[in-house]
């Protein structure tokens, strides 16, 4: 069939233009901006002055940025292990043929269809409430002293717990779809050969889920590095060090806030570039550690 190159070009032109304008241009501008002293995000390049690596130097020596990175790493590693482990556990249980699997699947996924703002408000104002919160009602029923779940010591972990609660259902569904793609006869054969459920999980499910696990870790990494809303909800009015994450640091730096008139879009751009590099590094390491499964089924 004769190819009409003009028509092909016309068809892909809108996509290419959209990609160039909404993705490539902002990325290039952000990278360039990170090497300049820029106050306002949208100021013209005439107002920029070359700053070399000073923005990176400023950011990397900032105690607040380092605190935000530490918080982000904790979310990524600790939150990731707990979320993905819980999701996998629930996926395995719900695909094992238990009664009411559909109900539990819907119930566990439900937090994902509720607005994160509403969910966070529920956790902050009800579950963690010091005077009449669910957790402190349980604690006092056990005869113990009430706990300040949102005090400076516990606030980060309270935020992470609430975030994990809202995330498990999403990853569980991904795992369920992966497990359901594994042929049932593999498990039947393994059962006939005397393999226990644990053996089946470690010798069949896990190896065949490598690709899915890699995908979920990548998704989680993106979620952890772009963590924003929950931190905003848990530290209203002004940012707190206990819940700050790099995107909040970037946001405060670029937009300022109540009583803040100092802005530094150049340093904000440097934070954005650093976060992108982190995601790329994580993805590269993941590709090295978790090769795609060469098994066919």
């Amino acid at each position: 069939m004769k190819k009409n190159k003009t028509m092909i070009f016309l068809f892909i032109l809108p996509t290419i233009l959209t990609l160039l304008i909404t993705y490539v241009y902002p990325v290039i501008r952000t990278v360039v901006m990170s090497f300049f002293k820029v106050e306002s995000l949208t100021s013209t390049t005439a107002d920029w002055s070359f700053y070399g690596l000073s923005n990176y130097g400023k950011v990397l020596t900032s105690t607040t940025f380092l605190t935000s990175m530490q918080n982000m790493l904790l979310i990524w590693i600790v939150g990731g292990i707990i979320t993905l482990a819980l999701s996998m556990l629930m996926a395995v249980v719900l695909t094992s043929g238990i009664r009411g699997a559909k109900f539990f699947r819907a119930a566990i996924y439900m937090p994902n269809i509720i607005s994160a703002v509403a969910l966070a408000t529920m956790w902050i104002q009800y579950i963690f409430n010091y005077d009449y919160g669910l957790l402190n009602n349980l604690v006092t029923a056990l005869g113990l002293e009430r706990v300040k779940w949102l005090g400076t010591d516990a606030k980060f972990w309270a935020m992470m717990g609430a975030f994990i609660f809202g995330s498990v259902g999403y990853y569980m569904l991904i795992f369920i779809s992966g497990i359901e793609g594994i042929p049932a006869d593999l498990y039947e054969a393994a059962t006939l050969d005397g393999a226990t459920k644990v053996d089946q999980f470690s010798k069949i499910t896990l190896p065949l889920m490598k690709g899915i696990i890699k995908t979920t870790i990548t998704f989680w990494s993106i979620n952890a590095t772009t963590f924003f809303l929950w931190s905003k909800m848990f530290s209203p009015i002004d940012t707190e060090a206990s819940t700050i994450v790099p995107v909040i640091y970037l946001y405060d730096m670029v937009f300022g806030g109540k009583g803040v008139s100092v802005r530094d879009a150049g340093a904000g751009a440097a934070v954005g570039v650093l976060l992108t590099l982190i995601i790329i590094a994580i993805y590269a390491v993941m590709n090295l550690l978790l090769k795609d499964s060469d098994l066919e089924y």
């Binding site: 105690t63 400076t152 002004d238 707190e240 060090a241 700050i244 405060d252 100092v262």
Partner: peptide, 21 residues
């Protein structure tokens, strides 16, 4: 003002808030 003197050093804001808490 509303904490303008502290916020003159934006890098200090969040830590100041947590330490005051």
């Amino acid at each position: 003002s509303w904490c303008d003197s502290i916020n003159a050093n934006p890098d200090l804001m969040s830590s100041f808030k947590t330490l005051t808490a």
